[in-house]
Amino acid sequence: MILSQAAAAAGHHYLHFTQLGLHPVLYSFHIFGHQLDIRWYSLAYITGILLGWWYLMKLLAQPGAPMARRHADDLVFYATIGIILGGRIGYILFYAPEMILHPLQMFRLWDGGMSFHGGAAGVSIAIIYLARKNGLNWLRIHDYVACCAPFGLFFGRIANFINGELWGRPTTVPWAIIFPNTVAFGPNPPRHPSQLYEAGLEGLLLFAILWFLFWRTKARYQPGKLVGAFLLGYGCARYFVEFFRQADEQYLNNPILGTPGTHMGQLLTIPMIIGGIYLIRTAKGRQERAGIKISETDAAEA
């Protein structure tokens, strides 16, 4: 409270979000008497999926790919459904269970409300379905898809920033931003632009790590190593940023889930971190048991 009041008192020194000229709706038009909005949030999902698809094709063109292009095209379709359904269901279960009492609100995706953890589960189900349907190694497909996931994470967090949502905790750091409507009464305090922190860590940094592992090491031949690195990297990044991010509104006054270190977003990353470490440590053994051979081209470069 003291920090919030002190930051608010010095608010004129900080950048106001409204000065950036950003708006959740990029363009609106009317058709048949109805207004349709093109939102940055929707474009973020579309851009992330298309770029992820493009990058997946690049990865599959390298020796040792676990599936063919025809499988990848099907996977993008199934994964898109998994992202939407899993993300929405995860948000309802983890953050807004009261929405179950108002079923029509579940379909109002344009109002926001998507959970990364739910979306990740949806994509995993899609991968497992595709793999079993075609007799493919589902864990190795996870490895390749994990390398593409940072695209969606980056653009999703940028869209969160443009929407002026999921802002951080009050602070007095020089780069703090004053977001509108963050408190019920009184002046809005400057806050951490935690959306940008997440875009940098979960998007750019995580992509760089996975890029290095895929293109500069033989990690793609060790089932689970790349997806393990993704889970560990995302889990650590998300856990760290939650110390600067405001707790979700429904948990803000919760003595447990409203306290940094026990935010819902942090609790959900703990299984990811543990699972990531396990997958990394056991990846070499899976390669040996499966008898996966490094291609002659890669072996020559080793």
Rank of each mutant, 00 (worst) to 15 (best):
T171M: 04
N160H: 11
F179H: 02
P187E: 08
T182R: 14
P189W: 07
E165D: 15
H192W: 14
F207S: 00
S194V: 12
F212E: 14
A199D: 04
P170Q: 05
Q195M: 09
F214G: 15
F185L: 01
P174R: 13
H192C: 02
W211I: 00
I162L: 11
E202C: 04
L206G: 02
R191K: 01
N181C: 05
N163W: 06
P187G: 07
L201G: 02
L205M: 12
F207Q: 01
A208V: 06
W215R: 14
P174T: 04
E165F: 02
A184I: 11
R216L: 00
P180Y: 12
L166G: 05
G203A: 15
G164K: 01
T172V: 13
L204K: 06
F179N: 00
T182N: 03
T171R: 12
P193A: 09
H192K: 03
Y197E: 09
V173H: 02
E202A: 10
T217L: 11
F212K: 11
L210V: 05
P189Y: 04
N181H: 14
A208I: 15
P170W: 00
W175I: 10
F185Q: 02
P189K: 08
T182G: 13
G186P: 08
L205H: 08
F179L: 01
E202Y: 06
G186F: 13
G164Q: 06
V173T: 14
N160R: 10
H192F: 14
F185G: 03
H192N: 05
F185A: 03
N163G: 09
L196D: 06
E198R: 01
P189V: 03
F207V: 04
G200L: 15
F207A: 02
Y197L: 10
T171F: 14
S194F: 13
I177G: 04
W175V: 04
Q195K: 00
P193S: 05
Y197I: 11
E198K: 02
W215P: 10
T217Y: 11
E198C: 01
A176E: 05
W175F: 14
L206R: 00
F207R: 03
A208Q: 15
E202T: 07
L210N: 13
G164H: 03
G168F: 13
E202N: 01
I178N: 02
T182D: 05
R169N: 09
P190L: 05
P170L: 07
W175T: 07
G203C: 15
Q195P: 02
V173G: 07
P190Q: 09
P189M: 04
L201C: 04
G164R: 01
P170T: 08
F179A: 00
P190E: 05
F161H: 02
V173D: 07
L206A: 07
A176N: 05
V183G: 07
I162A: 10
G164P: 08
P187S: 09
L201P: 00
E198W: 03
I178T: 10
P180D: 03
W215F: 15
G168H: 01
R216F: 08
L201V: 09
F161E: 10
Y197N: 00
E202V: 12
T217D: 06
I209D: 10
L213C: 15
H192M: 04
F214K: 15
P187I: 04
Y197K: 02
N188K: 04
W211G: 05
P170I: 08
W167G: 00
L210I: 05
